[in-house]
Amino acid sequence: MLKLVDHLVLEQQAVLDAWFDLILGTYSENTAVLWKKRDDPFANPVRHRFEAGMRGIVVGLGTCGQTPDVATFGPYLDEIVRVRAIQDFTPSQATAFIFLLKKAVRETLWDKIVEHELYIELLALESAIDVLALFAMDIYCQCREKLAALRIDQIKKQYDRLLKRANLVCDLSAEGGEEK
């Protein structure tokens, strides 16, 4: 008999479409229209990244067993979180998209779940999705830290060489390491 995750993989397109629609619901209406367009990935990079990430996540959930691991899901979550991390969302808004997958799964696969009594598997799947949310939080933080680091770097780069030239800072690299 097919398991819930098998149904998930078999009907991934329907789940993905439902999920994508839910995620687009977090943007304003006319923005959603643009990002919905199945344009080429360079004219519409947001959709492209979201699609790639979402598909990876759904397929990954189909094969990951009980506990999802960062190595598998990190890159896929990154595709989405990296974009949302700089889109004027609060941290919870930026990462909440992952919970929308639960809704998409229930809406799309509910008939199958009822028919085959897959409730326990549904609970397991939802727990796995909860784990993904925690990963997403990690990635979100990494992205924001990166952003802060980039800002600091920019200031440093602006004045670094001037300070060196003004002989205000000690340039260790020019002297060679102490241990040599």
């Binding site: 977090t26 919870s92 909440a96 919970f99 929308l100 639960k102 809704k103």
Partner: peptide
């Protein structure tokens, strides 16, 4: 299923 998040995005 969205759990506790009541996010007013729209």
């Amino acid at each position: 299923p969205e759990e506790l998040i009541k996010i007013n995005y729209t």
